[in-house]
Design a protein around this nucleic acid. Structure first.
Length: 481
DNA sequence: AAAAAAT
């Protein structure tokens, strides 16, 4: 079977050929004719199966006739994350080169006015994350009554992220005689309910996972004897140093961890950059572009990157810790071993994470080989052999500042970044700029060796032996919110 | 134990 058999608009066929495709994937072969016929479709498929083209192609085909009216988009694609929305937009442009269609990408973190202009001019398609779409709608800048086709992509991801109420709200704003396509990697009851509620006799299409984890991904775990971040960072470096990494993703569970690990890796000469939801959208896009183009070797990521991101051909996945949700383990390591290639994944498991790891093992239903190396043993030994620092005024000063990180408020969490900055002074800083005076806590005499002295050189500069009085004053440490 | 998404 070829694309020519699919009865698509010749302009589309030529765009598809130019993109280098001749044969539709199974989901494309099944979905495209059904969508052209006007049927609702429920597609169970993960990324990497050609799912995006399965709805973008027939959508463009149908949009080929007719024209958009001002503020009345004709089709709507909902995506769970900004990056995914941007990727779908790229696909839309790629396959729509021979059409004169107007597209508006409605995602947060970027200018509202530019998006509004596009809607006002008349958009054939809106590609949106739920929050920004609702924002436009609630400001009365958008009429949904002209939408003839709705795509809900990555529905299970939407569910995980708590978007289902938004999706329901949006569905109710659309005309009932529209066509609805829903795609999801899994079909939990909540999603099945959604299809019943908002789809009309949908054609069910299910395709197998592209690359089964067992075959192409070699998985390893390395246990860390300590929960200390300095130990884990040392192990991580030893693991990465041991691999022949073409490009890889390092997954962390927290955004602050992402920042710190990325900076630490940079400091030790690795080509790494962070990506997570608190970073500016422009930086997220830029980093992802660099990573795709091969200008960046290591992407240090939160689970924003676990699913859906179109990053082909990753040679390695490193888990700084097992993910809190064991399903995400499968998604994370699924970033490698794609499209028939082989890949390796390494997961660091420290004592604190043993329960998470048990959940992962249960989830994948097999045991995973323990990986160790001389470098790892050396890294562990190196940290534990490090002499205790003698308390002196300078250190006391520094440690008292560090105490700030145990605080609960957001303000306090900021001091993690301060630590990261110490970790790698020369690393580029793209963090927020608001900047607060750090305050010592009352128990300032207790030494804090809990974190971060492994690779941190002398960190505080410019104060010398002098300790300003305000730093020694006790502060109220009760959370403010 | 998390992250994501509107300002």
């Amino acid at each position: 079977m070829t694309f020519d058999d699919l009865d698509l608009d010749p302009r589309l066929l030529s765009a598809v050929k130019d993109a280098g495709y001749t044969e539709p994937t199974p989901i494309q072969a099944q979905a495209i004719p059904a969508v052209i016929q006007g049927r609702d479709v429920t597609g169970i498929a993960q990324t990497g199966t050609g799912k995006t083209a399965a709805f973008v192609l027939p959508m463009i085909h149908k949009l080929g006739q007719g024209r958009a009216k001002a503020r009345m988009p004709r089709t709507l694609i909902l995506e769970p994350t900004r990056e995914l929305a941007a990727q779908v937009a790229e696909n839309f442009e790629k396959y729509g080169v021979n059409h004169k269609l107007n597209m508006a990408l409605l995602i947060g973190g970027v200018s509202f006015a530019d998006q509004d202009k596009k809607i006002t001019a008349g958009a054939d398609v809106l590609i949106a994350t739920p929050g920004r779409l609702m924002d436009h709608f609630e400001r009365g800048r958008l009429l949904m009554t002209g939408v003839q086709m709705l795509v809900i992509d990555e529905a299970d991801r939407m569910l995980d992220m708590g978007f289902i109420p938004d999706i329901e709200k949006i569905c109710k704003l659309l005309p009932t005689n529209r066509q609805t396509l829903l795609f999801s990697a899994t079909m939990p009851p909540e999603i099945a309910k959604l299809t019943k509620q908002f789809q009309n006799d949908p054609k069910q299409i299910e395709v197998a996972r592209p690359a089964q984890t067992a075959e192409l991904i070699t998985q390893y775990m390395t246990s860390s004897p300590s929960d200390k971040d300095e130990v884990k960072r040392g192990i991580l470096r030893a693991i990465i140093g041991n691999c022949d990494v073409k490009n890889g993703i390092v997954f962390c569970n927290r955004k602050t961890e992402v920042d710190i690990v990325a900076k630490s890796l940079n400091k030790h000469g690795f080509d790494a950059a962070p990506i997570h939801g608190d970073l500016p959208q422009s930086y997220r896009m830029e980093t992802l572009d660099k990573f795709r183009n091969g200008d960046l070797k290591l992407l240090v990521a939160s689970d924003v990157a676990a699913r859906g991101l179109d990053v082909p051909d990753v040679s390695h996945v490193f888990n700084y810790a097992p993910p809190p949700n064991s399903d995400d383990y499968v998604h994370r390591i699924g970033r490698t071993g794609r499209a028939g290639r082989t890949g390796e994944s390494y997961t660091i498991v420290s004592p604190r994470d043993s329960k998470l790891w048990d959940a992962v093992l249960k989830r994948i239903g097999k045991d995973i080989e323990q990986f160790s190396s001389e470098a790892i043993v050396a890294a562990i030994a190196d940290v534990s052999a490090r002499p205790e620092r003698k308390p002196n005024k300078k250190n006391e000063n520094r440690n008292s500042k560090r105490k700030g990180r145990h605080g609960r408020t957001k303000d306090r969490a900021q001091s993690d970044e301060q630590i990261a900055n110490n970790d790698a002074v020369e690393a580029p800083t793209i963090q927020k700029t608001e900047h607060q005076v750090e305050k010592p806590k009352q128990e300032k005499k207790k030494r804090s060796n809990k974190r971060g002295n492994d690779d941190l050189g002398p960190s505080f500069k410019g104060m010398g032996e002098h300790v300003p009085a305000f730093l020694l004053r006790p502060v109220d440490t009760t959370p403010t919110s």
